Amino acid sequence: MAYRFARWAACACSLSILTGCGGAIRVDPPVPDPASAAACEALVEGLPETLDGAERVESAPASPYVAVWGEGEIALRCGVPRPVNMAATDEVPVINDVAWFSAPSLPTLFTSVGRQAYVEVTISRSHTPETVLVDLAAPIKAALPQTG
């Protein structure tokens, strides 16, 4: 139980989302490996301006690997590490040809897997995860090739 809490706290601290009041939304940017950095930049540039009714907003610090919509209601980080709680035997749902890992202990955090880079998406409960993930599938497939 302490391990689960520690992992949740680490995720909550690393994201630091939902702290912006009227300005840029604070999201800790990831540091993708050099092989994924350009693909992550292309992904973020190709993301929609509106996602599940939320408009895209600025993040702080500014990063080519981060996108935020609404008042931090939806946040995307490209080039994050592999989820530590994902086992090789975990089955993950596939939505429009993009596989998404979600730990039951973190029901609003989704990570795309099986691509050149891991993409982490935090979705507030005021949005429908399936709608958001469907809308993100095309840009992810365009920017991040599948891995073996």
Score class of each variant (00 low, 15 high):
126 S>Y: 09
46 G>V: 04
36 S>L: 12
61 P>D: 07
77 R>M: 06
34 P>V: 13
126 S>H: 09
140 I>L: 08
106 L>V: 08
80 V>F: 04
116 Q>C: 02
87 A>P: 04
82 R>I: 07
120 E>W: 00
66 V>R: 06
67 A>F: 06
38 A>L: 12
30 P>E: 03
10 A>H: 08
105 S>D: 14
123 I>P: 03
10 A>W: 11
124 S>M: 08
86 M>K: 15
69 W>R: 05
122 T>M: 11
84 V>C: 10
99 A>V: 01
53 G>A: 07
98 V>T: 08
115 R>Y: 00
80 V>T: 15
88 A>C: 08
8 W>T: 12
5 F>A: 13
9 A>R: 12
122 T>R: 13
135 D>A: 15
70 G>V: 01
27 V>I: 15
66 V>G: 02
25 I>L: 06
147 T>A: 01
99 A>S: 15
44 V>Q: 02
45 E>I: 07
95 I>P: 01
42 A>H: 09
56 R>H: 03
72 G>Y: 05
49 E>F: 05
41 E>G: 13
3 Y>D: 14
69 W>T: 05
132 V>M: 06
65 Y>H: 15
77 R>H: 07
11 C>N: 13
27 V>S: 02
75 A>C: 05
53 G>S: 04
113 V>G: 00
43 L>P: 04
48 P>Y: 05
95 I>S: 06
137 A>S: 15
125 R>M: 12
111 T>S: 01
65 Y>D: 02
34 P>T: 10
146 Q>D: 11
28 D>L: 12
101 F>R: 01
49 E>N: 09
21 C>Q: 12
30 P>A: 05
67 A>Y: 02
4 R>V: 15
64 P>N: 05
35 A>V: 13
105 S>G: 10
71 E>C: 12
57 V>C: 09
110 F>W: 15
115 R>P: 08
64 P>V: 03
10 A>Y: 02
15 L>E: 07
57 V>E: 04
95 I>Q: 06
74 I>K: 02
77 R>W: 00
141 K>C: 10
56 R>T: 00
133 L>S: 05
87 A>D: 14
53 G>Q: 00
62 A>F: 07
129 P>C: 07
59 S>A: 15
58 E>S: 15
103 A>P: 08
17 I>W: 02
3 Y>Q: 13
136 L>A: 03
89 T>Y: 11
75 A>S: 09
40 C>W: 01
136 L>R: 01
7 R>P: 00
123 I>Q: 06
73 E>F: 11
144 L>D: 11
106 L>Y: 00
26 R>S: 14
97 D>W: 08
137 A>N: 01
95 I>N: 07
79 G>V: 07
37 A>C: 02
47 L>G: 04
8 W>E: 09
98 V>P: 00
116 Q>I: 10
134 V>N: 08
51 L>N: 04
118 Y>Q: 03
11 C>Y: 13
141 K>V: 14
47 L>Y: 05
133 L>Q: 05
138 A>I: 04
82 R>S: 09
106 L>G: 01
62 A>Q: 12
30 P>I: 00
144 L>K: 05
105 S>C: 08
109 L>Y: 08
138 A>T: 14
109 L>M: 12
122 T>D: 11
16 S>M: 07
37 A>W: 07
139 P>Y: 03
7 R>I: 10
75 A>F: 01
19 T>V: 10
49 E>V: 10
5 F>V: 12
77 R>S: 13
98 V>K: 02
47 L>N: 05
29 P>H: 11
21 C>S: 13
13 C>V: 12
